[in-house]
Structures are given as structure tokens and as C-alpha cells.
Simulated scan of single mutants.
Amino acid sequence: MTPAATPAINVDELVAIDVHTHAEISADGHASLPPRLMEASAKYFGAHDHRQPTIDEMAAYYRERRMAAVVFTVDAEHATGHPPIANEEVAGACARHADVLIPFASLDPWRGRAAVRAARRLVEEHGVRGFKFHPSLQGFSPDDPMAYPLYEAIEELGVPALFHTGQTGIGAGVPGGGGIRLGHSNPMLVDGVAADFPELRIILAHPSFPWQDEALAVAHHKPNVHIDLSGWSPKYFPPQLVRYANSLIQDKVLFGSDYPVITPDRWLADFAKLEIKPEVRPKILKWNAARLLGLAKEG
């Protein structure tokens, strides 16, 4: 089955494609996370003046910078008890700004068959172009067979699955980490998913501290696995990540910011100072994502 129609994005005119941004507030003011977890995340990132832009505001922000952005929220209601922002709202808002925004959805795998049905509906009726998972926040191990029917549906739909990996600012400093278990976001747990679903295109989100070597191993070994560079300023990237991005996995590394907690302005300014080969830089900033998202065949 083919994905929904390609959004009206002119890749040639873009400076970059940001594959990792968050819809943190709904049109009626509902936040994507409970207040104590949102506050912990803002503190972790040093975002003292952090505000939650609407999706319409995000579109204006990225349009002004001649960038496109993947937008998603996280459905973690089973673990947190907090209702998510509706995927349909995210998709609808992105559709109003199809020249710059690309909608991903998030489904809690604990929803079982309901999640599978929702995945198909969101792609086929709402134009969703991928799915975001946050195993630590959602309280599941990526290789749990419980989630496999959902992966199977996503694989059949032909869209990517993006997994948070490594440390998270969500729950940081809260007693018990807010109940969030970091071990669920070890990228080696996604390796089994990549093996069992060889046609499922996977993105490992973030430099995967403290499992960076594991993430690089998985991305190098599994043809369908990519890495996005969101959530960290490039000046803090571990040297092995820069080395692999420049060589062995140069076609599988993607620009992501983690907006709004990290702005693309800050990320790109630091990335410009990084020792990345001239021929690799445009791949990371735009062309790898364009191919993965079906926006371009070559680059």
C-alpha cells in the first residue's frame, strides 16, 4: 500500500527539513504532557522562557526560514493518564500548511487493535506520513510482541516509525523520574524490530546517550534504520557520531531540532561549526529526509 499523497513541498527551495518537532499545545489549550513532566523537560533543556507555539505558529516560523518540519505529539495516556492531543488535529493543522509541515501521528501501542485501526485511518484518511513512539514515556519495550501488530500495519502502510532513544528530559529531576524508565529507550531494543520488520523504515531519534555506539551499530547493520540528530546541540555530539555521519551512515543521518525546546536557529548555527564534509552536509540537512519521506528520489 502506498502512503498518502505527497504534500505540496518544493524540496529544491528548502534550506533544510527538520524531522523532529513537537506539537505541545492544542487549539483549545490542552497540553501534550502533564504539567510536572512539561516543567521538568523545560528545566532539563534550560528553556526558561519556553512557550508552546500552536501548529499555525510553527508553520509561520518554518516558512520564514524556508524549512519544512515533521510535526507530532505523543500518545502516552496508558502510562501517564494524560489524554493526548488528537492526531486528527495535528494532521488537519499540517494540511493547512502543506508547503512546510509534514504530519506524523502517535499511537499508544497499549491500545492494541484500536491502535492498528487508527493507524490505517490516519494514513488513508488524514494524510499522516509517519508515526512517533516514545518507549520510555509510553511505558513499553520496543521489542514487546504487544506492539508488533501496530508495526505490521505501519510497515504495510509504507510510512516511517520514529523511536525516541536514549536519555529524556521528560521526568528528569522529578522523584523517581516520574516513573519513566530510561531502559525502554535503548536502541538495541529497536534492533529486533528492524530484524522482524525488514521493510519498516525506522528513525532512531536523538544522539542516543548513553547508548550512542549501540545506535550506530544498529543503523550501520540494518538498511532500514536511520538516525536523527535532534535534542542536542551539535557542539555536544560524541566524536563517533560525527565520524559515522561523515562516512558509513552519511545517507542515513537526518537533521532534527526538537523544536520548540531547541530551535533550528541554534542547532544550525552550531552545526555550521561542526567538521562535516561539504558533500555530506546537504544530505543531513535535507536530502536524506526528502528521500525517506518520499519527497524526492535523488539528492
Rank of each mutant, 00 (worst) to 15 (best):
Pro234Asn: 02
Gly178Thr: 04
Arg266Phe: 09
Gly46Leu: 08
Ile262Thr: 03
Leu254Gly: 05
Gly178His: 00
Val242Cys: 01
Val123Gln: 04
Ile203Val: 14
Gly112Asp: 10
Tyr236Pro: 00
His50Gln: 15
Gln138Asn: 07
Pro187Gly: 06
Gly231Leu: 07
Glu155Tyr: 09
Arg266Gln: 14
Pro278Glu: 04
Ile85Arg: 01
Leu285Ala: 04
Glu88Asp: 12
Asn186Pro: 08
Lys235Val: 14
Ala98His: 05
Ser185Trp: 07
Arg266Glu: 15
Thr165Trp: 08
His50Ile: 13
Phe104Ser: 05
Ala60Cys: 13
Ala86Pro: 15
Ser26Gly: 13
Arg129Asp: 05
Gly81His: 12
Phe140Val: 03
Glu155Ala: 09
Phe72Tyr: 12
Ile17Thr: 08
Ala59Ile: 04
Val193Trp: 08
Thr263Cys: 12
Tyr259Ala: 04
Glu156Val: 10
Phe140Glu: 09
Ala172Lys: 10
Asp49Leu: 10
Gly231Cys: 12
Pro260Val: 08
Val242Glu: 00
Ser32Val: 08
Tyr148Cys: 05
Leu285Thr: 05
Gly139Thr: 12
Gly183Glu: 15
Pro210Ala: 08
Ala153Gly: 08
Arg113His: 10
Phe255Pro: 00
Val261Ala: 01
Pro135Tyr: 03
Arg66Asn: 13
Lys277Gly: 11
Pro187Phe: 00
His20Ile: 15
Gly127Thr: 07
Arg266Thr: 14
Ile55Tyr: 01
Leu216Thr: 00
Val70Tyr: 00
His206Lys: 03
Val159Phe: 04
Gly173Arg: 13
Ala217Leu: 11
Ala79Trp: 01
Gly166Cys: 12
Phe255Leu: 07
Val253Met: 05
Trp232Arg: 02
Ala217Arg: 03
Pro198Asn: 10
Pro149Tyr: 06
Glu13Cys: 05
Gly171Trp: 05
Gly112Glu: 04
Leu101Gly: 06
Gly294Ser: 09
Tyr236Glu: 04
Ala153Asp: 12
His48Trp: 12
Tyr236Phe: 15
Asp56Met: 11
Gly177Thr: 12
Gln52Phe: 12
Ile55Asp: 01
Pro53Gln: 14
Asp213Gln: 11
Ala153Ile: 03
Pro175Asn: 06
Ala195Asp: 15
Arg281Tyr: 09
Glu88Gln: 09
Arg129Gly: 03
Lys235Gln: 14
Gly173Ala: 12
Thr165Ile: 15
His126Lys: 05
Pro3Glu: 04
Asp75Cys: 05
Ala215Asn: 01
Ser230Trp: 00
Asn288Tyr: 06
Met67Glu: 09
Ala119Asp: 10
Val280Arg: 06
Ile202Arg: 01
Arg266Met: 13
Gly169Lys: 11
Lys252Trp: 08
Ala217Trp: 00
Ile9Ala: 03
Ser106Val: 02
Ala8Ile: 11
Glu64Met: 14
Val242Tyr: 01
Asn246Tyr: 02
Gly173Tyr: 13
Ala76His: 08
Arg36Tyr: 12
Lys43His: 13
Asp213Ser: 07
Ala272Phe: 10
Leu107His: 02
Ala296Met: 10
Gln52Thr: 12
Trp110Phe: 15
Arg121Val: 08
Lys252Ala: 02
Glu88Cys: 08
Ser26Asn: 13
Lys132Gly: 03
His206Ala: 00
Asp191His: 07
Gln52Gly: 07
Ser257Glu: 11
Ala5Leu: 07
Arg113Pro: 03
Gly92Cys: 06
Ala119Tyr: 11
